[in-house]
Design a protein around this nucleic acid. Structure first.
Lengths: 197, 197
DNA sequence: ACCTTAGCAGACCGATCTGTCTATCCGTCG
DNA sequence: CGACGGATAGACAGATCGGTCTGCTAAGGT
């Protein structure tokens, strides 16, 4: 990734960008190869040369999205909040930023998993994402000194998923605020005593 | 539905049963018409005679599933719990019954929406289901005398969705217990004072 | 000047998709 | 008996799918 700084807009990058747009907007199975290469302005051979198969293109799309999400979350959390406890709640605020985006179509990994065959590249990429989500909450819960970090993380993941589903399926961005409020309660209760250290 | 008691296993019913099995197990877009009619032991013309198009078959599948879910939830809640407050929490227990089913593949409406085009029959059927879920919680919250039934319902829907996603994507049935515990806390807080009336 | 490498355009393949149509069969009712 | 409605099997059409392959173009390094 971001290997040799040779050309400016490589075919692989244009393919990934096009795949990202189309796959997320319309679904992985709905969008055919031809649409992707047309949108990327790239030859079909370049796609198979760079990715080998549509399945691998899907995996690359999900991995790229995972990386973007992860970096954005990390960056925003560090910039906005100081303590682990604040960041545990802040996750929801950062998550909610995308809910008002007109291009928002729900969690890409939920949608991908819904369309994927078990064991496929998409399935695996979704699992990778899920394990990141869990560790995001778990690590913060530990750093915050929660009594039962595993339990707190599980509870917050519930709310995180619920907010994403609600904002998507009900077209209701207020799911973020609702989830954040409940999260605040759970976090406060879980780290009662000794707010510092 | 269940109209004239003529034949024993009508073609329409066999089609719906086959569609239900295959669509839920493998996804609406993945399963073709031919697989459905083969699994139902029915001629292709019968399908188009009964439903008109695949889209309408998908709608019928989702509507049937919605009806089954609704009836089962109503029945189990009435049989198991006496008060609205208990039933608000009991929803999660009933929901969790399916999590351990080996055929469990997540919420059918989430998956269908992920594959559906906006405005399609599947999309509409998913919206119908969503509005039922909200009214299920809202009506119970009102009956339980919650201070803010709308807010409580929204919070419980978050947990409901989160449990379904977690049990599915993480293959973790314990999401039900976690959601139920948080729900119990929220319900208790929302109807503090006067447990009766 | 040559050769490699990457990319482009597009024909082509076999499979599969939804949907239509023909033709046959069978049970029931008049 | 005869007619008819509903079911059957299956060929067929037109489109699209993922994937392969053959040429052509152009830039860059030695």
């Amino acid at each position: 990734m971001s290997g040799k700084p040779q050309g400016r807009a490589s075919a692989r990058e244009r393919l990934l960008a096009a795949a990202s747009e189309l796959f997320y907007a319309e679904g992985v199975n709905t969008v055919g190869i031809d649409r992707v290469i047309e949108h990327a302005g790239v030859a079909k051979a370049s796609l198979y040369n760079a990715f080998g198969s549509k399945d691998e293109l899907v995996r690359a799309y999900l991995r790229a999205r995972h990386a973007t999400t992860r970096e954005r979350m990390t960056r925003e959390l560090e910039a906005r909040y100081a303590t682990p406890a604040e960041r545990l709640v802040g996750v929801f605020e950062v998550q909610g930023l995308s809910f008002t985006d007109p291009a928002f179509r729900g969690c890409a990994f939920v949608s991908a998993k819904a369309e994927a065959q078990p064991g496929s590249a998409a399935d695996e990429a979704a699992d990778e994402y899920r394990s990141w989500v869990h560790s995001l909450f778990f690590d913060l819960a530990q750093d915050a000194g929660a009594h039962d970090p595993k339990l707190l993380a599980q509870q917050l993941v519930l709310l995180y998923d619920g907010a994403g589903i609600g904002a998507w399926m009900d077209s209701d961005p207020s799911a973020e605020a609702a989830a954040r409020n409940v999260a605040q309660t759970l976090v406060s209760a879980a780290i009662a005593r000794r707010p510092s250290q």
